[in-house]
Amino acid sequence: MRRNPLAILAILALIALAAAIGFMTIGARGSWSFILSFRGTKLLGMVLVGYAIALSTVLFQTITNNRILTPSIMGFDALYGLLQTLLVLVFGAAFISGLDARLLFLIEVTVMMGFSLILFRLLFSGALKSLHLLMLAGVVLGILFRSLSGFLQRIIDPNDFLVLQDRLFASFNSIDSQLLGVSFLLVGLVSAIAWRIGHSFDVMALGRETAISLGVDHQRQTLVILLLVSVLVCVSTALVGPATFFGLLVANLAYIIMPTAKHRHVIPAACLLAIITLVGGQTLLERVFAFNTALSIIIEFAGGLFFILFLLRGAIR
């Protein structure tokens, strides 16, 4: 009677595989070596981004005990935008473009992790509602970062601004292949840590009190997961730009289609769903709509419809 989680995962994996094969082969003409490396880079990028967004959203929702939040509420992507703006403002677009993208990327990751660490240290002094205080501070800081970026972008050199705007738009067409290697490394590292502490995710989802009562060091675990989330957000934002609604969509889809709330089922489901949506959506975009629109528009349109539907049906609690 009850659906088997492994069977669902297998079906999702098959669909993801089909989407990947479709993306690589449909409409392929000309030299295979070119197609493989050109589309392969894009495919790897999308798989990595989908994985990073899905994992970060599920983990963030686990530590906040809230299924309608995404890491963007903590101002993570706003900080990324501000960092980019500041770099371009201070050093100029020419210097930034000349710099090794990987070095820049590592600097950005470090700053973002430092930001979550400071935020956490300042506010997580152990008072009762402190995680909510932490999120509130994140919301306020996010607004500050966005306004600051907006202000700086107005006084910036117009030529620099064009370069900056290009860096800040979410686009799956211009995945920076230079960053793929270091991104894989970081995401691999994050996954290894997540795997090691994975047994506590289900307990963390029970809420602070129950988790502590069951012997989980809730505060430390929250900090570790927040740091992992900030790395993942960094990777996905750096590769394609801010795409946060997407995480909300795949995480909630995973909660709905999986019969259990166990992370060892939900996380793979969310990641596979993310890959299916990204790769399948991009295939549709390139082959059916002939690049006439942006993938993020399609995803947010379909995602919005989906959300309204489920809200009406009362399936999201």
């Binding site: 005990n65 809230n66 299924r67 289900d202 989802a205 029970l206 809420g207 009190e209 129950t210 009562s213 909660y255 259990t260 709330a261 609690r317």
Partner: peptide, 14 residues
């Protein structure tokens, strides 16, 4: 072990 009076839970558990 400790049990509180109200236990709100987000996750769907059996």
């Amino acid at each position: 072990a400790f049990l509180r009076q109200d236990n709100h839970m987000v996750a769907r558990l059996t």
